[in-house]
Simulated scan of single mutants.
Amino acid sequence: DRTFNNKSPNKMAALGKKSLSSIFKTKLSGANYETIKSELANYIEKNAPRVEAWGYLLSLEQCGNSSQLLSLVKEIQSTSGSNLSHGMSEFIKKIQR
């Protein structure tokens, strides 16, 4: 009770708005992450030899956040000898936004 009684109604409303907006922003960034992940999967499927694509798609599936995704993209860029590596700089830009 002390926590709520010590704050004015205006401050409480502002706190509520901040938490709602942060939740909304988190969902947007999560949706953006999933979109990039999906685009990367499609790009890998179209541009990598089957065996190479299979390995990268498995790694992609295990990515749980944008930093892991960025590490994978950089690995693909540095180790892939196919056309696959050429598009990775664009994915790096998307992830770092």
Results as ranks from 00 to 15, higher is better:
residue 32 N to H: 14
residue 27 K to D: 07
residue 34 E to T: 10
residue 49 P to S: 04
residue 51 V to N: 09
residue 44 I to V: 02
residue 29 S to Y: 13
residue 74 K to L: 09
residue 50 R to E: 15
residue 34 E to F: 12
residue 42 N to Y: 06
residue 60 L to K: 00
residue 77 Q to N: 03
residue 42 N to C: 06
residue 2 R to D: 00
residue 25 K to S: 12
residue 81 G to D: 02
residue 4 F to E: 00
residue 97 R to Q: 11
residue 22 S to Y: 13
residue 77 Q to M: 07
residue 15 L to K: 08
residue 48 A to W: 00
residue 75 E to A: 07
residue 20 L to A: 05
residue 25 K to Q: 10
residue 58 L to Q: 11
residue 49 P to D: 03
residue 26 T to Q: 10
residue 49 P to N: 07
residue 88 M to K: 04
residue 63 C to V: 00
residue 8 S to D: 01
residue 85 S to A: 04
residue 51 V to W: 14
residue 77 Q to W: 05
residue 20 L to Y: 06
residue 39 E to A: 08
residue 44 I to A: 00
residue 25 K to M: 13
residue 26 T to S: 10
residue 43 Y to D: 01
residue 77 Q to I: 04
residue 81 G to Y: 12
residue 18 K to C: 03
residue 13 A to Q: 12
residue 57 L to Y: 02
residue 86 H to I: 15
residue 88 M to E: 02
residue 52 E to P: 15
residue 27 K to V: 12
residue 97 R to W: 14
residue 83 N to C: 09
residue 27 K to S: 14
residue 64 G to R: 08
residue 49 P to R: 10
residue 18 K to D: 05
residue 26 T to L: 14
residue 90 E to S: 15
residue 10 N to R: 13
residue 21 S to D: 12
residue 51 V to G: 14
residue 62 Q to D: 11
residue 42 N to Q: 12
residue 40 L to Y: 09
residue 12 M to A: 00
residue 46 K to C: 03
residue 89 S to R: 04
residue 77 Q to K: 06
residue 23 I to M: 11
residue 94 K to D: 08
residue 73 V to I: 06
residue 38 S to K: 11
residue 71 S to W: 01
residue 78 S to M: 11
residue 45 E to V: 07
residue 96 Q to C: 08
residue 13 A to C: 05
residue 45 E to M: 08
residue 28 L to H: 10
residue 48 A to C: 00
residue 53 A to S: 15
residue 24 F to L: 15
residue 40 L to W: 01
residue 6 N to W: 11
residue 64 G to C: 10
residue 97 R to I: 11
residue 39 E to H: 15
residue 53 A to C: 06
residue 31 A to S: 05
residue 20 L to K: 08
residue 70 L to N: 12
residue 68 Q to S: 01
residue 80 S to M: 11
residue 20 L to M: 05
residue 94 K to F: 05
residue 51 V to A: 11
residue 15 L to T: 00
residue 77 Q to T: 04
residue 40 L to T: 07
residue 78 S to G: 03
residue 18 K to I: 03
residue 37 K to R: 07
residue 83 N to M: 11
residue 80 S to C: 06
residue 27 K to F: 05
residue 17 K to M: 10
residue 35 T to R: 14
residue 16 G to C: 05
residue 77 Q to H: 04
residue 80 S to H: 09
residue 41 A to M: 01
residue 87 G to C: 06
residue 86 H to G: 07
residue 63 C to F: 02
residue 20 L to H: 13
residue 84 L to C: 03
residue 67 S to P: 09
residue 63 C to M: 03
residue 49 P to W: 13
residue 76 I to Q: 00
residue 16 G to Y: 06
residue 51 V to E: 09
residue 40 L to I: 04
residue 1 D to G: 06
residue 61 E to W: 13
residue 91 F to D: 00
residue 83 N to G: 13
residue 75 E to N: 09
